[in-house]
Write a protein that binds this DNA or RNA. Structure first.
Length: 810
DNA sequence: TCCTCCCGCCAAGCA
DNA sequence: TGCTTGGCGGGAGGA
């Protein structure tokens, strides 16, 4: 076994010895029969010869017999014998399937425990393995290389490896996911899909500019092996070939699964990406075929590990082989639920031992190496700030801030909207960190006695409605209605405050303008999400039903907060569930919006009202709701999950939000805004802001703050200064504002700003394009399936383009 | 016919 | 120099 080549060599020798005088071998002289259409191939010939020649003597005899060729009878006999031998040989030989790498890998894995005891190391001796498994050494290398890429084994010395089992797997997968994200594999996949859609795969084709830039950006990270601390990598050949190594390819392949949603990767795409990183210009067919071969090798091993499963993706151009990730879900660094529960330990899945938050933080924001995290320095501040505030809150005798329910709603919407965008810039780890730090006890719960007694809920949004509930709000001043998308929970809360208005559920497609052929998908997804939401909320709801009598006095704000907590607790489950559900949903975009409450007592008595309300006197029945700056912001379904973080509390904090993170725009059109802002009625934005500021006691009652001075442009970053969006903001429109909290002397900074377009264009167009209005002139803000709907600018900000939605997969 | 992937040549690099 | 390691592509088996 150690010398399989020698065997082959021997047989080849035999072959060469025999062939000169062995004509009949290729054309068995069967009487009255034409020679086989398919002449014997060298390989089958060889196989036959091996079997026939196994005893050397017989071989010689045969040769002698053949060379003699004196007797035709003998020859015929011999040929028949050979045929029989060949048949026997073929029957006795394991079939191709039985020799597959996958099966071999199964056998290999069966030799070692999944989780070996750390105390006793298992060593792998290649010679032993090859002998025991009756396999060529070469094949073992294939397996070992892939296992090495997952740090399940590591090379110790020549012929010797150490078996780690699956202990390192979660950590490895996390690392790979992170690197995959950094390498922008999602963009590359999308680019390839887009290109596929546009052109046929053209080996000699020019390098697509977009693709080139996408690859170029990833080339910075170069093809290298992702190592784990503590798992030393000692490849036999440390340079030269390492970049093409099966190990590296395997890691990249795994990365593709980990970063894509759904976690299905076609071989074609994977091969193209792997080639693309290597040398895109040599994208010829043979290279492509070779990559595919290797990917099959890798896929076989990964399948044996039950990390992936073969599937088929049916596209317009037919059925394509693909693989689906069936391995463990790779959570971003920590398991937030656990973290929240224990609150003192940061528990990464593998987590040998990362005992403190400091270490967890280190893991999240490692100082070494190039990190995309650099653009999220604000998050570090945020985390610290949250920590500080939580400390303050916990030590404070009473709740630090009493906010009204309506204020809470507004801010929740605002924060959710902004945070959904903001968080989309964050890596998964950062999000996890954020979730981990916003533990439920940090949420200030308003005291029921101090909350205004609320009117009964209208229940306008039926329970059966999806979690994203469109409602129409009439706008008394402009005479037009606003369509707002709300989560059912939020809509429910909102309707509590708006008894005076008819709120009508609308078909999603009508409001969003998403193409009708996608409506089904959308509805299905929304329904499913709604179901999920309901399902998850069920315990809460039933509890609520049981406790309804006592809870009548409970404020909406409290409910909202509690719901938030429930949502937060269920966040992880939801994410998992909706990940499954959103196989294609990731390509679908939901609108989101928020609502600004406006009181009737805008002129003059606002302060009074505000005061009254603070005292719980001001009846909310007098509160009218308008939506002067409602934005309809499309976002992927996946981000809706992100949106569900209302546990963020309204404690004054030093919050730095991305300057582009909050979008505010009139629902209908700019002309509406213009008419609104030029009318005698006060600017809704300023009214809203005054209302809010007074409402939460950030400005004294009676003080009216004009829109522009207060809603001043806050220089959040240099970018916002130069952003075409900010320069184009119309008068009276909120760009940014700061809340000053007298309670703990900290600022609450918001910035509202349209995104910077990729290229300079008409300011008006920028605004209109981004804040596409349902029912407006551009009624179809549909989005492209070729991208996740987002593009990052060089500053790392987010821009959501409005493009066609094309669901490519069945 | 095409997908799948076994097989082994042969070169790089190590001992 | 012999051995280990592993890239690579031909071509066979199977659907």
């Amino acid at each position: 076994l150690k010398t399989p080549l020698k065997q082959a060599a021997t047989s080849q020798l035999v072959l060469t010895e025999r062939q000169p005088d062995c004509q009949p071998l290729t054309t068995p002289p069967k009487p009255k029969e034409t020679p086989p259409a398919d002449p014997w191939t060298p390989t089958s010939n060889l196989k036959m010869l091996i079997s026939a020649a196994s005893p050397e003597i017989r071989s010689r005899e045969q040769r002698r017999q053949l060379s003699d060729s004196s007797s035709e009878v003998l020859q015929t006999k011999h040929c028949l014998q050979e045929h029989l031998l060949r048949d026997e040989y073929e029957k006795s030989q394991p079939s191709r399937k039985e020799k597959s790498l996958g099966l071999l890998c199964h056998k290999f894995l069966a030799r070692y425990p999944d989780y070996p005891s750390p105390s006793q190391k298992s060593y792998i001796c290649l010679d032993e393995v090859t002998e025991e498994l009756h396999v060529e050494r070469r094949r073992i290398y294939d397996i070992v290389n892939v296992l090495e890429s997952l740090h399940m084994v590591s090379r110790l010395a020549r012929n010797r490896y150490v078996w780690h089992g699956r202990h390192n797997l979660p950590q490895t997968l996390q690392a790979l996911k992170k690197v995959g994200e950094e390498n922008k594999y999602i963009q590359q996949i999308q680019m390839i899909k887009k290109r596929e859609y546009e052109h046929e795969f053209d080996p000699d084709g020019e390098r697509n500019e977009e693709m080139a830039s996408s690859f170029d950006s990833s080339e910075q990270s170069e093809m290298s092996f992702v190592e784990l601390p503590g798992v030393e990598f000692r490849a036999a050949s440390v340079n030269g070939r390492k970049y093409k190594s099966l190990r590296v390819m395997s890691q990249k392949f795994v990365m593709l699964f980990l970063v894509s949603t759904p976690q299905i990767v076609s071989l074609e795409v994977a091969a193209k990406i792997l080639i693309g990183e290597d040398q895109l210009e040599d994208l010829d067919k043979s290279k492509f075929k070779t990559k595919i071969r290797r990917l099959y090798d890798i896929a076989n091993v990964l399948s044996s590990l039950k990390l992936i499963k073969k599937v088929h993706v049916t596209e317009e151009r037919g059925r394509k082989p693909a693989f689906k990730w069936t391995g463990p879900e790779v959570l971003p660094n920590t398991q937030d639920t656990k973290l929240e529960a224990t609150s003192t330990t940061c528990s990464p899945p593998i987590s040998e031992s990362i005992p403190s938050k400091e270490q967890c933080s280190k893991a999240l924001f490692p100082s070494k190496g190039k990190q995309n995290f650099t653009r999220h320095s604000s998050l570090i501040k945020l985390v610290k700030s949250i920590e500080n505030d939580r400390r303050k809150i916990q030590s404070a005798p009473t709740s630090p801030v009493k906010i009204s329910a309506s204020m809470y709603i507004f801010l929740t919407f605002l924060l959710e909207t902004s945070f959904s965008l903001f968080l989309s810039q964050m890596t998964a780890e950062e999000m996890q960190m954020k979730c981990a730090l916003s533990s439920p006890e940090a949420i200030p719960k308003p005291e029921p006695s101090q909350q205004p007694a609320l009117s009964r809920p209208l229940g306008v949004c039926p329970a059966s409605h999806s979690s994203v509930s469109p409602v129409i709000l009439p706008h008394p001043q402009s005479g037009v209605s606003y369509a707002i998308y709300l989560h059912s929970s939020q809509a429910h809360t909102v309707t509590t405050y708006s008894p005076g208005f008819m709120l009508q559920p609308l078909p999603c497609a009508n409001v969003t303008g998403i193409k009708s052929n996608n409506t089904k998908v959308l509805n299905k997804i929304t329904t499913e999400q709604g179901d999920t939401q309901r399902g998850l909320d069920e315990p809460t709801k039933s509890l609520a039903a049981e406790e309804r009598p006592e809870r009548k006095s409970e404020t909406s704000s409290q409910r909202c907060l509690k719901r938030s907590q429930a949502l937060q607790e269920n966040n992880l489950i939801k994410r998992r569930k909706s990940d499954e559900e959103s196989l294609d949903a990731s390509l679908t975009f939901f609108p989101s919006g928020y609502l600004i409450p406006l009181t009737h007592c805008t002129h003059g008595n606002k302060a009074e009202c505000s005061n009254k309300e603070k005292a719980g006197v001001c009846s909310l029945q007098h509160t009218a709701y308008s939506s002067p700056i409602t934005g309809v912001i499309p976002m992927p379904a996946s981000e809706l999950k992100t949106v569900n973080i209302p546990a963020f509390h309204i404690t004054p904090l030093n919050i730095m939000l991305s300057p582009n993170s909050i979008a505010a725009a009139p629902v209908l059109s700019n002309s509406c805004l213009n008419s609104s802002s030029t009318s005698s009625a006060p600017n809704p934005s300023s009214s809203a802001l005054n209302f809010m500021l007074q409402h939460i006691g950030l400005i004294p009652a009676g003080v009216q703050v004009p829109a522009n001075p207060v809603l001043q442009h806050v220089p959040v970053s240099s970018q916002s200064e130069n952003s075409p969006g900010s320069t184009n903001v119309q008068e009276g429109k909120v760009i940014g504002f700061t809340f000053y909290s007298p309670i703990n002397e900290s600022n609450f900074l918001f910035s509202l700003q349209p995104p910077a377009p990729k290229e300079p264009q008409d300011p008006q167009a920028v605004t209109e394009n981004f804040f596409r209005t349902p029912g407006g002139p551009n009624t179809e803000p549909s989005l492209s399936a070729n991208s996740d709907g987002t593009q990052r600018t060089s500053q790392g900000t987010l821009y959501i383009p409005q493009r066609k939605l094309e669901v490519s997969e069945d």
